[in-house]
Simulated scan of single mutants.
Amino acid sequence: MLVHICCAVDSHYFLERVQEEFPNEELVGYFYDPNIHPYSEYRLRYLDVEYSCKRLGIKLIEGAYNLEEWLKKVKGMEHLPEKGDRCTVCYDDRLDTTVKKAQELGHDKFTTTLLISPKKSQEKLEKIGNNLSSLTGLEFIYRDYKAGNGAEIQGKKVKENSLYRQNYCGCLFGLTAQRQAQKKIMDEMFNPISKQILPESIEQRLELYIKRNALEENGDKYKIIKQRFLNYRLLSAKVIIAKQIVPSHIMCYSTINRNKMNGRIEYEKDGIHYLNREEVKIISLETFNTLAYTEYKSIKELMYNPLDFDAEVEVRQQIVNNPYDLSTIIVLDEVIDAKYEIELNAQTYEDIKEEII
Results as ranks from 00 to 15, higher is better:
Glu217Asp: 13
Gln154His: 07
Ile153Trp: 00
Thr176Leu: 11
Lys211Leu: 14
Asn191Asp: 15
Leu172Ala: 08
Ile224Lys: 00
Ser162Ile: 10
Arg179Val: 12
Leu206Ser: 11
Asn231Gln: 03
Tyr232Gln: 02
Lys184Gly: 03
Glu217Val: 15
Ile202Lys: 09
Val158Glu: 00
Gln178Val: 01
Arg233Gln: 09
Gln154Asp: 09
Asp220Cys: 13
Asn161Arg: 13
Asn191Met: 09
Asp220Arg: 10
Gly148Arg: 11
Phe229His: 14
Leu206His: 14
Leu175Thr: 03
Arg212His: 09
Gln182Trp: 02
Ala214His: 13
Arg233Phe: 04
Phe229Asn: 12
Glu160Gly: 11
Leu175Gln: 06
Leu198Gln: 13
Lys195Asn: 13
Asn149Pro: 05
Lys156Ala: 15
Asn218Leu: 15
Asp187Phe: 01
Arg228Pro: 01
Tyr164Ala: 07
Ile185Asp: 03
Asn213Arg: 08
Tyr209Ala: 07
Gln178Glu: 09
Glu216Phe: 15
Gly170Asp: 04
Lys221Cys: 06
Ile153Tyr: 05
Cys169Leu: 02
Pro192Ala: 08
Arg179Cys: 07
Glu188His: 06
Asn191Tyr: 13
Ile210Pro: 04
Lys195Gly: 04
Lys226Cys: 02
Ile153Asn: 04
Lys183Pro: 03
Lys157Val: 12
Tyr232Gly: 00
Leu198Phe: 01
Ile153Glu: 06
Cys169Trp: 00
Gly148Tyr: 09
Asn167Ser: 06
Glu216Met: 15
Thr176Trp: 09
Asp187Asn: 12
Asn191Ile: 05
Gln178Ala: 07
Asp187Ile: 07
Gly150Lys: 04
Leu234Ile: 08
Gln204Ser: 14
Asp187Val: 14
Tyr222His: 08
Lys146Asn: 07
Ile210Thr: 13
Ile202Gln: 03
Tyr222Gly: 12
Tyr209His: 04
Ile153Asp: 05
Ala147Tyr: 11
Pro199Glu: 04
Ile193Trp: 02
Met186Arg: 03
Asn231Val: 01
Leu198Arg: 07
Gln178Thr: 04
Glu152Lys: 14
Glu188Trp: 00
Ser162Asn: 15
Gln166Ala: 05
Asp220His: 11
Glu207Met: 11
Gln154Trp: 03
Glu207Val: 12
Cys169Asp: 01
Gly150His: 06
Phe190Ala: 10
Gly150Asn: 05
Glu217Gly: 09
Glu207Trp: 04
Gly148Gln: 11
Arg165Cys: 06
Phe190Ile: 12
Gln166Glu: 07
Cys169Ile: 00
Ser201Gln: 02
Leu215Gly: 09
Lys226Gly: 00
Lys221His: 06
Ala151Gly: 07
Cys171Asp: 04
Leu206Ile: 02
Lys184Asp: 05
Leu234Tyr: 01
Arg228Phe: 02
Ile225His: 09
Tyr222Met: 08
Ile153Met: 13
Phe190His: 06
Glu207Leu: 14
